[in-house]
């Protein structure tokens, strides 16, 4: 359903083709049965209590756990409100939004992607930084090659995985490498922190660089090791209301919930630091 929806919009926005329009029409016609079903159940759920209000939040994947919690708290504090999340890579979310995906709030994992959203005129008002995140060395629980510092990652025996430079966590990795004056020879440059964490968790890799929050989320399977050079790349997470928000007031209330003390507690518990 969400897959279809995304595609609808990416097609609809492109004005080049009557053909695409035709296809869209047809797709709607054919898919109408399934779509209508899903929609009507959603409507029934929310119409149980009035007023019927839905808030859609696009948020960086690393925010999944705390935001889900904040969303639940928000729903209980605001009866009749449903908060829907779409978690994903920050750049991917911005691409979806510029292709016309409907959402009220955007929270990204770094300021660069938020700047892109601002530049694309998607954002209403000034983005607010609400948490920060730093890199941490992650090793399997038994730390097989005895890593204790960033320079240990250059040990020839160590299979190290990091994020690819093209993605935000990879940019942060490059920054700490420069700060420490080392040149890592990773066994793999992964697409996302999740992939890095997965490789370390499964023991495929001996060490990796991920965010503190990721280590917190995988506690028990892996160990996190702080290193001073991490300060060179502190990632600030901004949150913003979107220009096309259907419920601007509700969006603002949600942002307040995130930046407020209760929301910040949830985020801290997940390993995030104050902005």
């Amino acid at each position: 359903m969400s897959f279809l929806r995304t595609n609808h919009h990416s097609y609809a926005v492109r004005s080049w083709s009557a053909v695409a329009g035709l296809l869209l029409l047809a797709a709607c016609g054919i898919g109408a049965g399934a779509d209508a079903d899903t929609n009507s159940t959603a409507r029934q759920q929310s119409s149980a209590s009035t007023p019927d209000r839905t808030l859609t939040v696009f948020a960086a994947a690393s925010l999944q756990k705390p935001f889900t919690q904040i969303g639940k708290d928000f729903e209980s504090a605001h009866p009749g409100v449903t908060v829907r999340f779409s978690f994903g890579g920050s750049s991917g979310l911005v691409t979806q939004l510029s292709d016309g995906a409907p959402a009220d709030v955007l929270a990204t994992a770094n300021e660069a992607t938020m700047d892109q959203a601002t530049a694309a005129d998607l954002v209403s008002g000034q983005p607010t930084p609400f948490v920060s995140n730093t890199l941490q060395i992650v090793v399997p629980q038994d730390n097989p090659v005895g890593i204790s510092s960033l320079t240990d990652l250059t040990k020839p025996a160590a299979k190290v995985v990091v994020c690819a430079p093209a993605v935000p966590c990879g940019a942060a990795t490059l920054a700490v490498e420069r700060a420490a004056g080392i040149d890592l020879k990773p066994a793999s440059e992964e697409q996302s922190v999740t992939d890095v964490l997965g490789k370390v968790r499964s023991g495929q890799a001996d060490a990796g660089l991920v965010y503190l929050t990721d280590v917190a989320g995988a506690a028990g399977d892996v160990k996190g090791i702080d290193f001073p050079e991490a300060k060179a790349a502190v990632n600030t997470y901004p949150i913003a209301r979107l220009r096309d928000a259907r419920d601007a007031a509700l969006a603002t209330q949600f942002m307040a919930a995130v930046t407020g003390p209760q929301g910040q507690d949830v985020l801290k518990a997940a390993g995030f630091a104050a902005p």
């Binding site: 690819a164 430079p165 793999s188 440059e189 495929q204």
Partner: peptide, 27 residues
């Protein structure tokens, strides 16, 4: 591939992996 082999230029990063990565860097 991305799950099992990882992603390193010239060693494990095949064309689909490169495309997926470039989506982030240079669409």
């Amino acid at each position: 591939t991305i799950t099992f082999a990882g992603s390193l230029q010239g060693t494990t990063r095949t064309l689909p992996l490169e495309i997926y990565l470039q989506r982030e860097g240079d669409p």
